[in-house]
């Protein structure tokens, strides 16, 4: 009698805990979903407002992007910056990681340690003043194509910032490739560059892809570096243009803002889906730092 009473009470308690748990989970899910909701509704709303509501479906808003003189250009600039930086990072990191993994050079361990330290310590916040000065200085005294308002300079700056972590991640991949593959190829007479191209690169392809995606995502979303180094609106990437769209016009054009946000976010979302489908979303020290 008392036992079944106890049991019933415990079952009811457990039920309540369960319901409470799911309610809380829902609440948290809503907390995370709410800001994102606007991103998917407003672009298709005939009269977009700040509030989230069920849209009167339309695709007219996307025409607004054509009307803005900088919108498509900034998207293109973002692509150029990301791909350019990714090239620098992937090639630079692959060569360095391979040599560091396979050849014991004096001071290698110290070098790796300093790289790891640098990559987390020298952030845009800490280095924005010297970076601004450095790039202005290079532009003034070396060549304007490397100074302020140069996309190339932005790529170099961002590649410099991402390379240490990139080398580190890639070295992990290279370290897992058994040396006997390379030794075997070497006995057959293959040259080091040949081995790198025929054997090592295909084997660390997942690593190269990871670094490329990681770089693109980082550059795509980076606001600070291009914000400081690019003044010409025709050269600014989407991250910087986005801000001018809502701070510099008196009454923000929500149709433009929402569609632009969505288009600008799509590549990142696509890459996320690709990576999580292909490798499972495991992160190497943070796919974003």
């Amino acid at each position: 009698m008392t036992i079944s009473d106890d049991d019933a009470r415990r079952a009811a308690w457990r039920m309540a805990a369960r319901i409470g748990f799911y309610a809380l989970t829902c609440l948290i899910a809503v907390f995370f979903a709410l800001p994102l909701l606007w991103l998917v509704t407003a672009p298709f709303d005939a009269s977009p407002t700040y509030a989230v509501d069920v849209p009167e479906a339309t695709l007219d808003n996307f025409a607004e992007i054509n009307a803005n003189p900088y919108a498509w250009g900034s998207m293109f600039n973002s692509i150029v910056l990301s791909i350019g930086t990714a090239l620098f990072v992937v090639v630079g990191a692959a060569l360095a990681a391979y040599a560091l993994s396979r050849v014991r050079m004096p001071g290698r361990d110290a070098l790796l340690y300093v790289l790891l330290l640098l990559s987390s310590v020298v952030t845009g916040t800490a280095a924005m003043v010297p970076l601004f000065l450095l790039v202005s200085e290079i532009g003034d005294s070396v060549h304007p194509a490397l100074g302020i308002d140069s996309s190339f300079a932005v790529m170099l700056v961002m590649a410099g910032g991402l390379l240490p972590a990139g080398i580190f991640m890639l070295k992990d991949f290279v370290d897992t490739v058994p040396r006997s593959y390379e030794e075997s190829a070497r006995v057959f007479g293959a040259s080091p560059l040949r081995i790198l191209k025929d054997i090592v690169a295909p084997l660390i392809a997942p690593g190269l892809a990871t670094i490329a995606v990681w770089t693109v995502v980082n550059v795509w979303g980076n606001f600070l570096v291009p914000f400081i180094l690019l003044r010409d609106p025709g050269k600014q990437p989407a991250a910087v243009l986005m801000r001018t769209l809502y701070t510099e016009s008196g009454q923000p054009n929500l149709a433009l803002l929402s569609t632009f946000s969505l288009l600008y976010s799509l590549p990142v979302i696509a890459m996320y889906l690709y990576v999580s489908r292909k490798y499972g979303f495991r992160f190497h020290g943070g796919i974003k730092s």
Binding site: P178, S180, Y181, E183, A185, V187, I199, P202, L203
Partner: peptide, 13 residues
């Protein structure tokens, strides 16, 4: 010379 390694070192790709 040609060498056969203990783990064969066949290129997996």
């Amino acid at each position: 010379v040609a060498m056969v390694f203990q783990d064969y070192a066949l290129f997996p790709h």
